[in-house]
């Protein structure tokens, strides 16, 4: 009854409208017993950071298929840090080249999932990242 539920914000920053992946992941995390706050399309890093604060989430899941990840993700990480929310884990999904994945992970992104990623693996990765924190 008083178990701690994992809260995840799923957001799509940037301008591409391909939200299928975000919806599939949101649904899978719901089925994994998490509370998923789905914010929908065309979110700015500022909007995502504000929503994450109000919703007090453990994890932010971003879906980017437009190639804008190197612009959007560092900005969000910066906002989280300056807002005192560096403990929120950021996951990324979408089309991201390998060399960018390395850079993003160095910046603090927890994990990057490409096309075909297993949703059970994603849920497990989130669970582990959150439990290591508690």
């Amino acid at each position: 009854m008083s178990e701690r539920k994992i809260r995840v914000l799923i957001a799509k920053p940037g301008l591409d409208g391909h939200d299928r992946g975000a919806k599939v992941v949101a649904r899978a995390l719901r089925d994994a017993g998490m509370e998923v706050i789905y914010t929908g399309l065309r979110q700015t890093p500022e909007m995502i950071c504000e929503a994450a604060m109000q919703e007090d989430v453990d994890v932010i899941g971003l879906s980017i298929l437009s190639g804008a990840h190197m612009a959007q993700v560092p900005r969000l990480l910066e906002l989280l840090k300056s807002g005192g929310m560096a403990d929120v884990k950021v996951f990324l999904g979408g089309i991201v080249p390998d060399e960018d994945i390395r850079v993003l992970k160095q910046m603090g992104v927890q994990e990057v999932f490409g096309p075909g990623a297993n949703t059970k693996v994603i849920a497990e990765a989130i669970r582990q990242a959150v439990s290591s924190e508690r």
């Binding site: 649904r27 995390l29 089925d31 509370e35 914010t39 909007m47 504000e50 929503a51």
Partner: peptide, 30 residues
């Protein structure tokens, strides 16, 4: 969900206009 205990909270999708306003606080709740 009565089965998984999870939830999909989608009310914020319709409240994008309210972002960035210090006079507003939105909380989704399962």
């Amino acid at each position: 969900s009565p089965f998984s205990g999870g939830a999909l909270l989608g009310d914020r999708i319709r409240m994008r206009d309210l972002a960035g306003d210090e006079g507003i606080f939105i909380r989704s709740m399962a």
